[in-house]
C-alpha cells in the first residue's frame, strides 16, 4: 500500500486521478436526472412564462404577436386586476397574522398544560391533514343561508339579550342572517376565516417544536433575575427564542396564503366571488390562462405572482441569516 513497498509514485497518482474521474463521472450521472428535471420542469417554465407574458399567445393558435408590456399594463390598470390584487392582499394580510398569532397562542397554551396536550394538538392539526376541497364543501354547507349550521346557531340567539347589544344580531333576527358566500361584504372574510381555520394548526405545531428548543433553565434564570409576570418571561425568553420559528412560520404562511385557490374555486367556480371580491391571483391565473386561454395575461400574472413569492422567501432567508441567528 505505502510508497515504501516500492509502488512507483506515478502509479499512485494515476490511481487517484482515475479515482477522481470515476467519482466525478458517478456524481454527474447521479445528479443528472435531477438536474435535467429541474431545468425542464422548474426553470424552463419561468422562462416560457416570462416570454409569453409579452405576447398574445393562445393555445391552438399557430402564431402570436409580441405585444410588449401591454399585458402588464392591463394588469396594473384594469379594475378587474385591481380587485385581484386587493383580494389577494386582503386575504394574505388577514390570514397570515391571525393564523400565526393563533398558532403561537395555541402552542403556548398547550405547552403550559400538563394534561390533554396531545388531544388538543391532534384536533387542531386535523384541518391541516384534511383534503381542503372536501372541507370547503363542508364549510359551504355550514354557511348555507337557510339550513347551514352557522345561521341556525345564530338564530338561536334571537330573542335573547344578544339582540339588544349586538346590532348584527338585531338585523339578522329582524330580517335574515347573511348569505355569507353570496355577499360581497362577507365573502373575502369567510374565505380568510377558512384559511385561518385550515392553517393555524400547522403554525401551532411548528411553534410547539420551537418551544421544545427553549432551554428550561432560561425561565429559571429569568425568574431569578426578577421577571415576575408571565408576560415578562415571554418577552425575555420565549419570544426571542422563537425568532427563527416565527420567521419561518410567517414566510410559509405567506406563501400558502398567496396560493389560496381550492376554497374559492369550490364556492364560486365562475368569476371569483360576488363582485370579484375573492378574485385571488391563483384563481385569476386559472381563469385567464386555462379556462379563457388568454395565455399572455395569465403568464403576466404568473410572473407577478412569482416575484411576490420569491421576494418573500428571499426576505426570510436574509432575516434568518442576519437577524435571528445567534
Amino acid at each position: 500500500m505505502s510508497l515504501a513497498d516500492g509502488v512507483p509514485h506515478e502509479a499512485v497518482v494515476e490511481k487517484t486521478v482515475s479515482h477522481n474521474v470515476k467519482e466525478r463521472r458517478a456524481a454527474w450521472i447521479l445528479t443528472g436526472p435531477a438536474l435535467i428535471l429541474m431545468v425542464v420542469i422548474l426553470l424552463a417554465p419561468i422562462l416560457v412564462a416570462s416570454l409569453l407574458s409579452f405576447t398574445n399567445y393562445s393555445l391552438g393558435n399557430s402564431g402570436f404577436d409580441w405585444v410588449g408590456f401591454r399585458n402588464y399594463e392591463k394588469l396594473f390598470t384594469r379594475s378587474t386586476y385591481a380587485k385581484m390584487f386587493v383580494a389577494t392582499l386582503t386575504y394574505v394580510v388577514t390570514v397570515v397574522p391571525i393564523s400565526v398569532g393563533l398558532g403561537l397562542g395555541a402552542a403556548l397554551l398547550i405547552n403550559s398544560l400538563g394534561r390533554f396536550r396531545e388531544v388538543y394538538k391532534t384536533i387542531y392539526f386535523l384541518p391541516v391533514m384534511a383534503t381542503l376541497l372536501a372541507m370547503a364543501i363542508a364549510w359551504e354547507f355550514m354557511l348555507h343561508p337557510s339550513i347551514g349550521m352557522i345561521n341556525r346557531t345564530l338564530e338561536m340567539g334571537c330573542g335573547t339579550f344578544l339582540e339588544r347589544i349586538w346590532s348584527f344580531m338585531a338585523n339578522g333576527c329582524a330580517g335574515h342572517f347573511p348569505v355569507w358566500l353570496g355577499d360581497k361584504r362577507y365573502a373575502i372574510w369567510v374565505i380568510s376565516f377558512i384559511g385561518i381555520w385550515q392553517g393555524f394548526g400547522f403554525n401551532m405545531v411548528l411553534y410547539l417544536a420551537g418551544l421544545t428548543g427553549v432551554h428550561r433553565e432560561l425561565y429559571h434564570a429569568a425568574e431569578m433575575d426578577g421577571a415576575r409576570s408571565a408576560w415578562e418571561r415571554f418577552r425575555l425568553v420565549t419570544w426571542p427564542a422563537l425568532g427563527p420559528t416565527t420567521v419561518f412560520v410567517v414566510t410559509i404562511s405567506c406563501i400558502r396564503a398567496f396560493q389560496v385557490f381550492d376554497t374559492i374555486e369550490a364556492f364560486w367556480p365562475q368569476g371569483g366571488g360576488p363582485n370579484k371580491s375573492t378574485y385571488v391571483m391563483m384563481f385569476a391565473i386559472f381563469e385567464k390562462g386555462v379556462q379563457q386561454n388568454l395565455i399572455g395575461i395569465g403568464s403576466a400574472i404568473t410572473m407577478v405572482f412569482l416575484a411576490f413569492v420569491m421576494f418573500l422567501t428571499l426576505i426570510q432567508r436574509w432575516l434568518v441569516e442576519r437577524k435571528v441567528h445567534y
Binding site: 432551554h215 432560561l218 434564570a221 429569568a222 425568574e223 426578577g226 426571542p240
Partner: peptide
C-alpha cells in the same frame, strides 16, 4: 415568596444566558 422576590442570585449549570442579548445586556437584565 417567589424566586424573583427573594433577592438571591443564581448561576446555572448551563449558564442560562439569553442568547439574543449581548453580554452587557445579559448582565444588565437583573
Amino acid at each position: 415568596q417567589r424566586a424573583a422576590d427573594r433577592n438571591l442570585s443564581m448561576v446555572f449549570q448551563s449558564y442560562a444566558l439569553y442568547p439574543h442579548l449581548s453580554v452587557g445586556e445579559n448582565i444588565a437584565v437583573p
